[in-house]
């Protein structure tokens, strides 16, 4: 039988809504824990999985900071996409494993969001092998991009760079965060006990290291077929 909450329970439960407690947490408790238990930046992109039988689809949320985030710089980035859009789409088509891709200007970033099948590195490598010279125009507008132009001659660096600028994908099962944080510190997942009650604190600390993240695997209206399987079903050729 559940115990009736006493005054102390009610006090503690009410703390998060108290202004003084929020102030204390923001300016004292959280900075203390960031100092005490800093979290490594968790890597971007999908994590390798053992048997992706349920879905072969993967997400990319690539956030590329612009060299010049002013309206002029953002306009240059927009032009770099729009002037080459046919080639970029043809390149994505030739990769063969891409479901959809789109570009956004978001504050001082140009973002490429896409859904693709299988391995991340193969997707990026084949994309660059097909239209690297065109994508170089985009990279020239991006902070740190000059060092990777031409991308066809810096393919490994470019793949690592994209991985570092792809958003961390938060696990669908919240407690998996413990394992990911352990793995980032070189600790074998599952080898340390974790107190479930500390999960909110771990999330707050992680969001300090990874301010922008993708929340879970997202919604799918149909099973996770490959792009080629979908095209085959529609009879449009793959």
């Amino acid at each position: 039988m559940q115990r009736k909450a006493g005054w102390l329970d009610k006090f503690v439960d009410d703390l998060p809504s108290q202004g003084w407690f929020q102030f204390l947490s923001r300016h004292l408790v959280v900075p203390y824990w960031i100092w005490r238990d800093p979290k490594p930046v968790l890597p971007g992109g999908p994590r390798p999985s053992v048997q992706p039988s349920e879905s072969v689809q993967r997400m990319m949320n690539l956030i590329m900071p612009l060299k010049d985030p002013s309206p002029i710089g953002r306009a240059r980035a927009a032009l770099a996409i729009s002037q080459n859009v046919d080639e970029i789409f043809a390149g994505l088509d030739n990769v063969g494993t891409v479901h959809n891709a789109r570009f956004l200007l978001l504050d001082g970033n140009i973002c490429m969001l896409s859904v693709y099948d299988g391995d991340f590195s193969n997707y990026i490598r084949d994309f660059i092998a097909t239209i690297g010279s065109v994508f170089d125009a985009v990279m020239k507008e991006v902070e740190g991009g000059d060092a990777m132009v031409p991308t066809t001659e810096h393919i490994e660096e470019f793949i690592d760079w994209v991985c570092a600028h792809d958003l961390f994908q938060a696990p669908d099962i919240a407690t998996d965060l413990f394992n990911l944080q352990d793995a980032a510190k070189g600790i074998a997942p599952g080898s340390l006990p974790h107190d479930l009650r500390l999960l909110p604190r771990e999330l707050i600390l992680q969001l300090h290291s990874n301010p922008n993240i993708s929340l879970g695997g997202g919604y799918r209206a149909y099973p996770g077929y490959s792009a080629a399987q979908v095209r085959q079903k529609f009879g449009v050729g793959w």
Binding site: P52, V56, T97, D117, G118, D119, S121, N122, R125, Y225, S226, A228, Q229, R231, Q232, W238
Partner: peptide
């Protein structure tokens, strides 16, 4: 790795074996 991952163990190269 490209062979091991997408071709050998996932079969992405043909929708009939994916």
């Amino acid at each position: 790795e490209a062979v091991m991952c997408d071709w050998l163990n996932l079969g992405l190269q043909d929708p009939d074996i994916t």
